[in-house]
Design a protein around this nucleic acid. Structure first.
Lengths: 387, 387
DNA sequence: GTCGGGCTTGTAAACGATTACAAGAACGAT
DNA sequence: ATCGTTCTTGTAATCGTTTACAAGCCCGAC
């Protein structure tokens, strides 16, 4: 009736529990012994209990991957890579969602002491002293996919956002776009800060001034849409369209986080075919290129934001890439699925996932190795959202 | 140095291990006892070991959710709902990816006997005798989000695809579209079969003939794109455009699975602005509505397929919804993010996830309750991909 | 023939918690 | 003062494995 234990198998096979365990774990045993045990196991349908096993051997053969938002397609890329490495090594993967708050992450890291996983792979969106402290003190090996101070003393695998930004700007400039705006996620996040810095540097390298910098409330589609009015308003003096938009709602202020985020999902502007055709021509310069918002290109801190922004650009009659080129970051599946397909900076999420998983496994084997800090180089996936 | 155990705490507090355990589990104890234990716990930073605890109490406080494809946005909706219910009940959620093969699922269900989770929530894409058997014999409670024969003897929560299909067809007909094509996923899957049946019934209810039925190789974006040539070719005699397409590649055959699936990701047809404008007009009837492929609407078995199909429609110059209305199913985040936003049948994934999780928790509490079979009713989310 | 070494196998002690049971303390009732 | 109840606390068994140690056996070498 109830699940057979190793003792039951031993009894059925007429041997000791130790022998059963040995046969099951592939330790040397005589033919006959192995045979008898196998038969008893098969007959009773015995399956060893993972709970008891992990208590004894001190391992659960589970690894935890903590992501901030399961809805962000960049994590599916990363998850796939991690899962592959981890399951090849005989571990199960536990995926946890932490949300955007750092306190959740601290609680998670602290909770690892309970020993329900042998290692933790975390990709924190925000980092503070508490988190660093909890990571340093964590009972089980931790690998961070992202940036964390060296003093945390853990292996890290991070992207090179500045280089990625440079690729994006290089590309835009090469295609003749130099009035570039930037839609960032929250600047108080690790990726937000890195991308803001990268954007500034990349523009400087080309001797350009940013046309607009808008900070969305979050790295989500909804936040991307919500940030669009501020983006359009901040576009500069020749942004006739953004002023029109401003008339329908509160005038958004540029650079102001509150401006983009007053409502998580603002009533999106709906486009009517009439207005669409009209505004398109009225905002085009003599060469037929639109001067919408004063910018002719927008870089977004991730693909979700980019797609959100593209929706709103379309809503005010701007065509991508003709009027505005759009570049995303992460090169997630969404970039390929979006319409038009999104040119996106590949920050190596798959490789980061893979290497982070490998580091974690290596550290589980040997906790004394000195922490490595790997940086994965970006590349650019050019699609149709840029000319 | 090493993690303190309950024995260490007992020693430090000068009490017995039983007392420590009792205080920690909130059993009655004197003020003084509680105080001493708390202090020792705090001082040593003691955290109970989940492994040992689960061995003794026979519970891991972990639940497993198995999904076929983490890249399918319908699962993020479901996952979010499940996670919410499950974590509110004090359980952790383990997310596993099974892939499209039923054997993986059988292995997973069998493996649950190892006891690393207290319950399993599975959403199988394919079902066979083996799977039903393994579910029936499973050591831990199983809930199926999807269809499985009643003889499996488990709780199930499923969608009502036929009803959903009817909503989609009703809507299209109401908007004047009655030359409807259908892009299904593999018909040997549970959802594929249900949707094929539902589509046929829904058309019959309106006295309509299907213009084309194409079966994609998978429920993915790539499969949706790959299915498009067959769709266009199968559109009927007036599909001038699909013949043009046929010239650039092997002539695809309708209804043939091989036709859509010969290559997982075919070279997508690239549209040049010139040809786009040209083909649009040439394929429009006097009222300005295109006769592309002979159909004026396409229903797709899920959102990923729909987005894939929309990409290819655009590539041959067909405009959505003007030339072709497109309806997806699942009403996932992707439906909202796609461009144009996708009208989609909401099959209640969030509600299915929530209710499935509730059933699982209830069954863990009481394994003797008679299995329930819940059907969640669909609704239609109308967006701009339909007129 | 005896002894030592290498195998195989069994016995029993962990692993770190929970919990049944018993013992002792406190306290009210007689 | 004694007894019985109740409440607190400690001792020890238990969950199902793995594994250190010891015992037994077989074998070849002296």
């Amino acid at each position: 009736m109830s699940r057979p234990t190793i003792a039951g198998v031993a009894r059925a096979a007429g041997v000791s529990v130790a022998s059963v365990s040995r046969v099951l774990n592939g330790l040397p045993a005589t033919e006959e012994m192995a045979e008898r045990v196998q038969r008893a196991v098969a007959e009773l349908g015995y399956v060893p209990d993972a709970r008891a096993r992990s208590l004894k051997v001190g391992r659960t053969f589970q690894l935890t991957l903590a992501v901030a938002d399961v809805g962000n397609p960049v994590y599916v890329t990363m998850m796939r890579a991690v899962e592959e490495v981890v399951s090849a090594a005989g571990y199960r993967l536990v995926v946890t969602t932490t949300g955007p708050d750092v306190v959740d992450e601290v609680a998670l890291v602290r909770g690892m002491a309970r020993g329900y996983a042998d290692g933790l792979l975390i990709s924190p969106i925000r980092v503070d002293e508490d988190l660093v402290k909890s990571i340093r003190e964590c009972e089980v090996p931790v690998v961070v996919a992202g940036s964390v101070p060296a003093k945390a003393g853990v292996d890290t695998v991070r992207a090179n956002s500045p280089k990625g930004m440079l690729l994006a700007v290089d590309h835009l400039v090469a295609r003749g776009r130099n009035r570039i705006a930037f839609v960032n996620g929250p600047a108080d996040t690790v990726p937000g800060a890195a991308r803001a810095k990268g954007f500034a540097e990349a523009l400087k390298a080309h001797n350009l001034q940013p046309v607009a910098v808008v900070e969305a409330d979050d790295f989500t589609f909804a936040a991307g849409r919500a940030a669009a009015p501020a983006l359009l308003a901040a576009g500069g003096p020749d942004s006739s369209r953004s002023r029109r938009l401003g008339a329908t709602g509160p005038a958004p202020t540029s650079q102001a986080r509150g401006g983009a985020g007053q409502s998580a999902v603002p009533a999106p502007s709906t486009s009517d075919p009439q207005g669409r055709a009209g505004s398109r021509s009225s905002a085009s310069d003599p060469q037929g290129r639109a001067m919408g918002g004063g910018f002719d290109a927008v870089i977004c801190a991730n693909d979700l934001l980019a797609v959100g922004v593209m929706h709103e650009l379309a809503a005010v009659g701007l065509e991508v890439p003709r009027d505005v080129a759009v570049v995303g970051m992460d090169d997630s599946e969404l970039a390929e699925q979006s319409f038009p397909p999104l040119t996106s900076v590949n920050l190596g999420s798959a490789e980061r996932g893979r290497r982070a998983a490998e580091l974690l496994l290596a550290r589980i084997e040997d906790n004394d190795r000195t922490p490595r800090r790997i940086v994965v180089q970006p590349s650019l996936s050019i699609r149709r959202s840029t000319p």
